[in-house]
Design a protein around this nucleic acid. Structure first.
Lengths: 158, 158
DNA sequence: TATGAATTTGAGAATCGTTCTCATTCTCTC
DNA sequence: GAGAGAATGAGAACGATTCTCAAATTCATA
């Protein structure tokens, strides 16, 4: 029921409009990226790409990730102490923030309208008009605290 | 409401306890840093330090900023697209978040208990126990939007 | 399908911010 | 004021990312 266009098509479109070219490498990198779970660093993408084509260079991965970012298919995030990680468009489409487990590195996304509203209010009170923001909550996830799993009702929000 | 101890004293104390040494460079760097408005990058501190002692090396500035961070006298922040900037302890003592003007770079600090509470709640709902977080709101400050200060809806004919 | 102009590529050099190495110099204790 | 240990300055090294450039590829056109 969703009109979620194939990312490769979107990329193709973007490329056509700019007079660029859809190369074998670009297609491969995009495919690998969208098949993955997301939140990969350029290096991670590179590793996976090379399983199929060992000749692709890291520079090309970087260049392609920038391309994907430009057409809204990927969103770069720089979390604490790590290099930039890219999120696939499907997830990046609507704004959300992140919960990051400091133990296992798991990243959970969440949306909270109340916080958004308060942020805009705080900004306004200080004379700011917010264009965007960054909110990351770091802590331990349920898996990394097996002792305390039973007690709390872990919300399974979908 | 405690007497805000002289940062140099705090540093001295930390240094004594660890068997380190309070050198001329460390004192100078600390002094320069605490006299400044804050949110300086290592490079900025270096520039100011060299006005007094042109021989101090950038490496020593980095080493000293790390020291100051360890004794809680400085808090490092990496904002969007910039290198790490340090905040003096006075400001870092109690938790706060930041508003950053994307035009002029001005940084405003704010505290909002409601947001904090919501953050913890969201985390809990996802099975996380938050240890710390990062929240930065980017936008335009009042100064950088002079047009909109006076009145809204007034057509500006030029 | 062949041609050619323009784009893209791979490889490695370059860059930026930061940390490390190491020989020399300083601090602080006795 | 001597000596042990720590800190310094200079520059090399570093990791992530971008740039450079000759060679290869794409794609529109013939």
């Amino acid at each position: 029921m969703n009109s979620k266009r194939d990312p490769i098509e979107v990329l193709q479109h973007h490329i056509d409009r700019r007079g660029l070219k859809l190369t074998r490498q670009r297609r491969l990198i995009a495919e690998v990226f969208f098949e993955s779970g997301g939140h990969l660093a350029a290096d991670d993408v590179w590793d996976r790409v090379r399983r199929t084509d060992p000749n692709v260079s890291l520079a090309t991965v970087y260049r392609t990730m920038k391309l994907l970012t430009e057409c809204g298919l990927a969103a770069p995030h720089r979390f604490e102490g790590t290099s930039v990680r890219y999120e696939p468009a499907a997830e990046a489409e609507e704004h959300h923030d992140h919960l990051i487990c400091v133990k296992c590195g798991r990243i959970v996304e969440f949306v909270n309208e109340s916080i958004e509203a308060l942020q805009h209010r705080v900004a306004r009170e200080n004379g700011f008009v917010v264009t965007h923001h960054r909110m990351e909550l770091y802590g331990e996830c349920a898996v990394c605290r097996p002792h305390s799993v039973a007690a709390q009702g872990v919300a399974t929000s979908t």
